[in-house]
Amino acid sequence: MVSLADLDREKEVMTWCPGCGNFTILSALKKALVSLKVEPHNAVVVAGIGCSGHLPNWINIYGFGGLHGRTLPVASAIKLSNHKLTVIAQGGDGDGYSIGIGHFIHTARRNIDITYITHNNQIYGLTTGQTSPTSPRGTVTKFTPFGSLEDPLNPIALAITSGATFVARGFAGDLEQLTKLFQQAISHNGFALVDVLQPCVTFNRTNTFQWFRERVYKLDDGYDPTDKVAAYRKALEWGDRIPTGVFYRVKRRTYSEGLPQISKTPLVKQRIGNVDIVKLVKQFM
């Protein structure tokens, strides 16, 4: 039996600011893995660079802290190399929606069976507060002292458009819901996005826990996440009311399922000791 304690790395000092939304994300991830009985050695978390990117240091599963914006290619390749592993990529809004946006679209399109968690704090935390692609127009930071002139992008709508087969939004103020969303995302067979509203208590004084609590609501049982048009409609809702939960879910063949060469044995388990190339050599003679 896997327990929460198995996932702890309590020796390591945590460097997130007290009260940061990231703590909830870490707890929810651990709980989800335990409830799904994923053994720690069969799980890999791939992190980007940002405050959020420190997460792999504090959870006892395989971890890979990569480059800023490059979690998804690394995670994709790990999954293709051994599709028996549970692979989770996670990073900030800058990481995933700015510098890494290309990979986001293409990984969704490929439907690679991984879970992608974005710690969306609408700001660059680690670099001490610049606008991110999800910051509202007019956001004043050191880099945009006269207010940003760009409209934010919509991760939920973009994910649906890009072909993600599971699209959800969580809130770091609701551990219970977030855990459930992670469970569903990890269980989903295909590319799953969970965009998490994650208040940065240090650099984002607008989108605070309080600000979100006044606005978030849960998509209820009456909502049909298999209805793409409804999903788009909900995705466009932002402001006084902000929906959370599973926006969209669809079954589609995953990338690995299209590869007969790994249908029996994961790539990493295939023997490479004595590859016979005689037939190929003949072709050149």
Binding site: V46, V74, V268
Partner: peptide, 8 residues
């Protein structure tokens, strides 16, 4: 790099 890390 991802594949290399995964042992391939």
């Amino acid at each position: 790099i991802g594949a290399g890390f995964a042992g391939v």
